[in-house]
Design a protein around this nucleic acid. Structure first.
Length: 880
RNA sequence: GCCGGGAUGGCGGAACUGGUAGACGCACCGGACUCAAAAUCCGGCGGUAGUAAUAUCGUGGGGGUUCGAUUCCCCCUCCCGGCACCA
C-alpha cells in the first residue's frame, strides 16, 4: 500500500476492476426489489460541464447507496443527440452534424467514465440512431391513426436566427429559448400532438406524485392552467347572415354588466370589419407587429378601436358594440371577450380610455361604487352579490354563474365549460438534424403515412447544412419516393420532429435498448417507473410534461402499464461561480474568469479588493451567477479531474451544498475535499497493522450489542455510532453534504482515538477492534460518494474484495446506550450549566442535582422557584 | 399582479417530532516543524464588556403562543424562481 494518496494511480485501477467484473451491468431479477435511478441524459454538446458532473454524481451516489442497501439497481446513460447546435457547428466547420455529434459522444463518454459512474453502458442509446428514432416515427403513426396527431396551418413562433418554428414553451419573454432572438409570427402548416386531450389527467395526476417537488408540480399546474367558466355567444347578423361571436368568461355572474365586446386583432371579425375601414386595418396591423415581449404586453397601455359591428346581448338583447382590443389574445379561448368594465380591471381601464359605460352589477357590503378609480373589491367573487341584474339580483357568485349558464343553455347560446391554457404541441421543425416525420406527399393521395414495414425513414448522415433552409430539400435520394397508396412518384416530407419528442420516452427504452422488433418489451414492466429521476429545474415544465404525456399515450396504446413515468424527482440546483468584470468607459463589458483574478483579504479574512493578475489593476465583482460562457465564470470539469482526480471532484460537489440548492464553486473548497481524502489515505496507511490485527482477531464487524470494557472505548464507539445513525438518516433524505460531514467527523474521531493506544495489553485488542469497526463504517459511508478510494482502501486493508458488495452499516443500538447522560441545566430558558447523571436517575434526583449547581444557585438566589421542567435525556429548566 | 421557495458568523452550510444556535468545511489568526517557504501538525475563531470565571446581545424586522422558538402562528421588508393582458 502506497504511503501517499495518489488518485491518478488508484482510480484507473479501480475502474479496471469494475470493467472486468462488469460490476454495473443490470439484469432483471424477479423478486429482488429494483431501483431505477436515472439522470437526465445529456445533449452531446462537446464536453461535460459542471452541471453534468453534479447531476451525475448525485445519481451515482444514490445508485451505489441503493445497491449497498440490497436493491437491484439500473443506472443507464444515453445521448439526446438530435438538435440545432450540431447544425450550427456544421455550418461553422463544414462537418456533417452526425460526425460532430458522434465525436462529441465519444469524448463525453470518456469523461463520464473517468468520473467512475456506475453506469450500465450496455444499455447506452443515442436518439440520432435509426434504431431509436424509428420508434418516434412508429408512435407518431399510431398517434396519427388515433387522431392524436393532426395537421393544421397555424400561426407559429418563428425564430429568425435559427430559421425554425418554436413551440410556445420554447418562447421565453417573446424570444427564442436558444437564440434569444425576437420571435416573429408566421403561418406554416405543421403537425400537432394533441396534448390537450390529456390536459385533465396531466393536471389531476400531479396529486399522485408525492415524490415530486411542490414547486415543479405548481409550475406544471400553472402551465396547464385550468379555468372553470362559461362559453357563450353574442348573436349578430352580418351581410344578412346570422353569426355568433363566442367568448369565454370565468365571471358569468357579471354578464348583466357587459358594455362592449373586444376581439383580438387576429380575430376573423376584426379582419372583416377592417376590409372597408383603413384606419382599423392600420390599427390591427400595429397590434400584430407591436412588441411581443409578454412582460411588456402585460403592462402595455390598453388600446382599442371600434369595428362598427354590433352584436346582441344573449340575455337582454341589447346592442353591444364590438371593439378590437390589443389586450385580447387570439390564442386563448375564442380570441374574444365580453367587456365588463365595472368588474374586470383591464375592461375598466379600457372603458375609461374610450368613455364606455361602466355599470355596476356586483356589490360588496354596501361599499360605495365609483367609476373614478378601480378598487380591488370590484372583482371580489368571494363576497360579491349581484345587483342591477334583474332576476339575478341577490345571488352569490356560484349561484349566479349557475343561473346564467342555465339560461344561456336554454337559449342554445352557451354552457359551462372548462378552458385550458395548455396548447397542443406543434412538433414540425424545418430542420435537418432530427427525426424525419414519416409521411409521403402524393399529388393524388395527399399526405400518406409511411407503412410500418418501410420504417425507419432514415435520415442521411452526410448532409452539411449551409444555413439556407433544410438541406433535405436538396437531397433527391431522400426526397424521391413512391406513394405507398397509388405507387405514383411522390415526395417525402422533409420536416423533422421537435427534439423534445426524442427525450419523451427514452427512459422506457433503457429497459430494453437492444430490442429490435418493438418500441418496448416486457422488461419495461420490471424496471419502470423510474424510481428516482434527477435533473435540472429548467426541465420542470417542457420535458417532464411531454414525458408524462407520452407515457399516457403509450399506456393507452397498450405499450406500457404505468400512468406516470417518474415516481420521484430530484431537481438539482445550478452550479454558480463569482463573476468578475471591467466596464471600460466606452465599449463592451469584459468578463474575467475567476482563475484570472487575485482576491486580497484583511487580517480577519474579509475581502478588501480584487485585482486582475495580469495587470494588478482592480476588477469589479458582479456577484454570483450560473456558470456560463457569456459571463466567463465557468470551470472546466476536465481540469478538475486531471488535477485532483474524480473522487475529489465528486466529494466537493456533494459536500458544498445539499443537492436541491445552488452550489457555489470554491477553489479552496476543492482543496479541502482533496485534503480530506489525503488524510483518509494517511490514516488508513498508518493503521494498516492495527486493522489487520483487528480483522484477524475479530472480523470486520462486531456483534450487535457488544460492549467495550473500558468506558473511554464505549464513549468512542457511541460517538461513531451516533454519527452513523445521523448519516444514515441524512442519506435517506439525500442530504449528502451532512453525510460527508459525518465521514469527516468519523475520521477526526478515529484519528484521535488511534493516536492514543492503551498501554495495557489486555485492552489493546478492544482498541484494535474499535478502530477496525470505525474504519469499516467510514469506508462504506464514503463508498457511494468517493467510490474509488473507498474501493481501494476496502481491499488494501483487507475488509473484503468489493465494498459495493458489503452490507450497508447499521448503527448498533447497544452502542448508543450510555450509563450516564449529560443534561443541560437552564434557568428561565437560559443555559446555566450542565450535569452528568446516571441514566437511571429519576426526576427527583435530577432536580436535586440541578439545584445543587453553583451557577444555578446564583441565578435563582432570592427568587421563588415556580416550576422545574425536566426533559428526560435532554435538559432541566428551572423557572423562577 | 398571482403562485412557489428563501433570509443563520468573514464564506459554503449544520441544528431529528420546539430543547446546549453556529456541527463539518473554507478563510483568517497564533504556535510547532524548517535556514526559509510550501506542505503537514497543534490551538483559537459570532458581537460587546472583562486578564479571567462570567455576563450580555445574537438566526432579515415587528408582535404572539410556550418553562423554552432558527423551528409554530400573525404582520412587514428584502431576495430567488415560475407564470403573466388567460378573460
Amino acid at each position: 500500500m502506497q504511503s501517499k494518496y495518489n488518485a491518478h494511480e488508484i482510480e484507473p485501477k479501480v475502474r479496471a476492476y469494475w470493467n472486468e467484473k462488469r460490476s454495473f451491468r443490470a439484469e432483471e431479477i424477479p423478486g429482488q426489489r429494483k431501483y431505477y435511478c436515472l439522470s437526465m441524459f445529456p445533449y452531446p454538446s462537446g464536453k461535460l460541464h459542471m452541471g453534468h458532473v453534479r447531476n451525475y454524481t448525485i445519481g451515482d451516489a444514490l445508485s451505489r447507496y441503493h445497491r449497498m442497501r440490497g436493491y437491484n439497481v439500473l443506472q443507464p446513460m444515453g445521448w439526446d443527440a438530435f438538435g440545432l447546435p450540431a447544425e450550427n457547428a456544421a455550418m461553422a466547420n463544414g462537418v456533417p452534424p452526425a460526425q460532430w455529434t458522434y465525436d462529441n459522444i465519444a469524448y463525453m463518454k470518456k469523461q463520464l467514465q473517468s468520473l467512475g459512474f456506475a453506469i450500465d453502458w450496455e444499455r447506452e442509446l443515442a436518439t440520432c440512431k435509426p434504431d431509436y428514432y424509428r420508434w418516434n416515427q412508429w408512435l407518431f403513426l399510431r398517434m396519427l391513426e388515433k387522431g392524436l396527431v393532426y395537421k393544421k396551418t397555424g400561426t407559429v413562433n418563428w425564430d429568425p436566427v435559427d430559421q425554425t418554428v418554436l413551440a410556445n414553451e420554447q418562447v421565453i419573454d417573446g424570444r427564442g429559448w436558444r437564440t434569444g432572438a425576437l420571435v416573429e409570427k408566421r403561418e406554416i402548416p405543421m403537425y400537432y400532438m394533441a396534448i390537450t386531450q390529456y390536459a385533465d389527467e396531466l393536471l389531476s395526476a400531479l396529486d399522485t406524485l408525492p415524490g415530486w417537488p411542490e414547486r415543479v408540480k405548481t409550475m406544471q399546474a400553472n402551465w396547464i392552467g385550468k379555468s372553470y367558466g362559461v362559453r357563450f355567444a353574442f348573436p349578430y347578423t352580418l351581410d344578412g347572415k346570422a353569426e355568433k361571436l363566442w367568448v369565454f368568461t370565468t365571471r358569468a355572474d357579471t354578464i348583466m354588466g357587459v358594455s362592449f365586446c373586444a376581439v383580438a386583432a387576429e380575430h376573423p371579425l376584426a379582419a372583416h370589419a377592417a376590409q372597408n375601414n383603413p384606419k382599423l386595418a392600420a390599427f390591427i396591423d400595429e397590434c400584430k407587429h407591436g412588441s411581443v415581449i409578454e412582460a411588456d404586453m402585460a403592462t402595455m397601455e390598453k388600446k382599442g378601436m371600434p369595428t362598427g359591428i354590433h352584436v346582441d346581448h344573449p340575455l337582454t338583447g341589447a346592442k353591444v358594440e364590438v371593439w378590437v382590443g390589443n389586450y385580447v389574445l387570439m390564442s386563448y379561448g375564442d380570441g374574444a371577450v365580453m367587456g365588463v368594465p365595472a368588474h374586470d380591471e383591464r375592461d375598466f381601464h379600457f372603458a375609461k380610455v374610450y368613455g364606455l359605460p361602466i355599470p355596476q352589477v356586483i356589490a360588496v357590503d354596501g361599499k360605495p361604487f365609483s367609476t373614478d378609480a378601480w378598487q380591488e373589491w370590484y372583482a371580489d367573487k368571494e363576497h360579491g352579490i349581484c345587483v342591477n341584474s334583474g332576476k339575478y339580483d341577490g345571488l352569490k357568485y356560484m349561484q349566479a354563474v349557475d343561473a346564467v349558464a342555465a339560461d344561456l343553455k336554454a337559449k342554445g347560446l352557451g354552457d359551462k365549460q372548462v378552458m385550458w391554457r395548455l396548447r397542443d404541441w406543434g412538433i414540425s421543425r424545418q430542420r435537418y438534424w432530427g427525426t424525419p416525420i414519416p409521411l409521403i406527399h402524393c399529388s393524388d393521395c395527399g399526405a400518406v403515412p409511411v407503412p410500418d414495414n418501410q420504417l425507419p425513414v432514415v435520415l442521411p448522415e452526410d448532409c452539411v447544412p449551409d444555413g439556407a433552409g433544410n438541406p433535405l430539400n436538396k437531397r433527391a435520394d431522400f426526397l424521391d419516393c413512391t406513394c405507398p397508396k397509388c405507387g405514383k412518384k411522390a415526395r417525402r416530407e422533409t420536416d423533422t420532429m421537435d427534439t423534445f419528442v426524442d427525450s419523451s420516452w427514452y427512459y422506457t427504452r433503457f429497459a430494453c435498448a437492444d430490442q429490435k422488433n418493438s418500441m418496448v418489451d416486457a422488461r419495461v414492466k420490471y424496471w419502470l417507473p423510474v424510481d428516482q429521476y434527477i435533473g435540472g429545474i429548467e426541465h420542470a415544465i417542457l420535458h417532464l410534461l411531454y414525458s408524462r404525456f407520452w407515457t399516457k399515450v403509450m399506456r393507452d396504446l397498450g405499450l406500457v402499464t404505468l400512468d406516470e413515468p417518474f415516481a420521484n424527482l430530484l431537481t438539482q440546483g445550478m452550479v454558480l461561480n463569482e463573476i468578475f468584470f471591467r466596464k471600460p468607459e466606452s465599449g463592451r463589458i469584459v468578463y474575467y474568469n475567476p482563475t484570472e483574478v487575485d482576491i486580497a483579504v484583511d487580517a480577519n479574512g474579509k475581502r478588501t479588493g480584487v485585482t486582475l493578475r495580469a495587470d494588478g489593476q482592480p476588477v469589479e465583482s458582479g456577484g454570483i451567477g450560473t456558470m456560463s460562457k457569456s459571463k466567463n465564470n465557468g470551470v472546466d470539469p476536465q481540469s478538475l479531474i486531471e488535477e485532483y482526480g474524480a473522487d475529489t471532484a465528486r466529494l466537493f460537489m456533494m459536500f458544498a451544498s445539499p443537492p436541491e440548492q445552488t452550489l457555489e464553486w470554491s477553489d479552496s473548497g476543492v482543496e479541502g475535499a482533496s485534503r480530506f481524502l489525503k488524510r483518509l489515505w494517511g490514516f488508513a496507511h498508518d493503521q494498516q497493522a492495527v486493522i489487520a490485527a483487528g480483522l484477524r482477531e475479530h472480523g470486520a464487524t462486531v456483534a450487535e450489542g457488544w460492549k467495550p470494557a473500558l468506558s473511554a472505548h464505549a464513549d468512542f464507539r457511541r460517538e461513531i455510532h451516533t454519527i452513523l445513525k445521523q448519516a444514515d438518516f441524512d442519506f435517506a433524505k439525500f442530504q449528502f453534504n451532512t453525510v460527508v460531514s459525518a465521514a469527516m467527523k468519523i475520521l477526526n474521531a478515529a484519528s484521535a482515538f488511534a493516536a492514543a493506544p492503551p498501554a495495557d495489553a489486555k485492552t489493546a485488542g478492544e482498541w484494535q477492534r474499535l478502530i477496525t469497526e470505525a474504519t469499516g463504517i467510514l469506508l462504506r459511508l464514503l463508498a457511494p460518494i468517493t467510490p474509488h478510494i473507498a474501493h481501494a482502501l476496502w481491499q488494501d486493508l483487507g475488509f473484503g474484495e468489493d465494498v459495493l458488495a458489503a452490507p450497508w452499516p447499521a448503527a448498533d443500538a447497544a452502542a448508543l446506550d450510555a450509563d450516564e447522560v449529560e443534561l443541560v441545566v437552564q434557568v428561565n430558558g437560559k443555559l446555566r450549566g450542565s450535569l452528568r447523571v446516571a441514566k437511571s436517575a429519576d426526576r427527583a434526583e435530577i432536580e436535586r442535582l440541578a439545584m445543587q449547581n453553583a451557577n444555578v444557585q446564583k441565578h435563582i438566589a432570592g427568587q421563588t422557584v415556580k416550576k422545574v421542567v425536566v426533559v428526560p435525556g435532554r435538559l432541566i429548566n428551572v423557572v423562577v
